[in-house]
């Protein structure tokens, strides 16, 4: 089963994304900030990351940069943020994101991205 790590400090957003992804059959893990996400990524491989930008301790950009410098499987990452500005997109891609979605993310929208990046939940 494909494993996805949701990195977001807002519990509500984590639950929202979890519900969408679990309903589609993915296995979902959570981290509340960049540090925790990094720790988890080093412990076990994920197939995809869904990452918020603004978080305490280590933000989304910082997390992705740290992640990309690790010698582990480099899974695609979707950056999710309320900011819709071009400069934020650029910064996200420079840090190592592979897609950028604006919150609130529509379920179909997220699922298409996820499917394209890592395939269906089963199979």
């Amino acid at each position: 089963m494909k494993r996805i790590l949701i990195v977001d400090d807002a519990a509500t957003v984590r639950l929202y994304h979890r519900q969408i992804l679990e309903a589609a059959g993915y296995k979902v893990y959570e981290a509340v900030n960049g540090i925790e996400a990094l720790e988890k990524s080093l412990q076990q491989p994920f197939d995809l990351y869904v990452v918020d930008i603004n978080m305490p301790k280590l933000d989304g950009y910082g997390f992705l940069r740290e992640l990309r410098s690790q010698d582990i499987y480099q899974a695609p990452a979707i950056m999710v943020s309320t900011e819709a500005q071009t400069s934020d997109h650029q910064q996200a891609f420079a840090a190592g994101a592979n897609a950028y979605l604006v919150k609130p993310v529509k379920p179909e929208q997220l699922l298409i991205q996820v499917k394209l990046m890592i395939g269906e939940a089963r199979g």
Partner: peptide
Amino acid sequence: ENWQLGRIKAVAATLTGCLMAS
């Protein structure tokens, strides 16, 4: 910088995903 190679790996992973999906 070297870490930016990780970015390339992630792009490769994303492209692979697209190929699989399509």
